[in-house]
Design a protein around this nucleic acid. Structure first.
Lengths: 125, 125
DNA sequence: AGCAGCTATTTGCTTACCCGCATAGTAAGG
DNA sequence: CCTTACTATGCGGGTAAGCAAATAGCTGCT
């Protein structure tokens, strides 16, 4: 399967890592443009999967995985409505977090662009 | 997809999609336990690279890269003091962000753990 | 039950990014 | 200058995680 974010850490598997590891995973869930897009989309109103698929512009399976991840991580909740599932954001702190991040990111947009690639090794294709 | 990000009103307004990539990158910078650890370390007081290396417990080159990333992303700023560079956190919003994330992550720790695991019982690949 | 629509999982490939080790570059001080 | 201390970059390897496409599994309606 392909649970998007989060999988076992490389060298730090069973370390009594306090919140660091958890928080890092938490952030990683938001570190993907697609999930971020979906989250903000759902934030603006309850959405069905189909709407999410269309909004995200990627395949349904991918969206399904991303949504599952967001649900698992507690960002959004799912509710069945007939044949469909409807997703919504339950925790108001999520909005705060995103807003705060957007504010900071906007202020450092130029620098962030510069930081696109950390090491700067072979890339391209 | 690579939009240059046009900085709009931070804490207000509608949300264009422009910032998505930038914000994702912003979160990605915090999606690593090591960087998170360094950030919180620096948050508690100005630190030299050497102190960061010792605190992080990884090689100096790695720490250098992580610190560069944090600086590039605007989380911390560097100041030269004699031969050394001293790092500190300038923006109070950083602390807010981390605290908010920790709060949310703590509440969803179980779910996050679940998302961490690989679905199949056995091995992955 | 059987069909149709919606959602989740599997497979295979590719890229991103973590690490340590070795080394190159640069700013201070003698 | 030249040396030394500090910081940054290059290389190679390994793992996580992204995507598309095909497919399996549910759920509700007729």
């Amino acid at each position: 399967m392909n649970t998007p974010v989060l999988a076992g850490s490389p060298a730090t598997a069973e370390v009594p890592c306090t919140h660091l590891d958890t928080t890092a995973r938490f952030f990683r869930a938001l570190a993907d443009p697609t999930r971020l897009k979906l989250l903000e989309f759902i934030q603006r109103g309850e959405r069905t999967s189909a709407e999410c698929v269309e909004h995200a512009g990627i395949s349904q399976p991918r969206v399904s995985v991303h949504l599952s991840c967001l649900v698992d991580c507690g960002y959004v909740s799912a509710r069945r409505d007939g044949k469909k599932l409807r997703y919504s954001v339950g925790d108001p702190r999520v909005a705060d977090l995103v807003m705060l991040a957007r504010s900071l990111a906007a202020d450092n947009a130029a620098a962030l662009d510069c930081c696109t690639r950390i090491p700067g090794e072979g890339e391209q294709r």
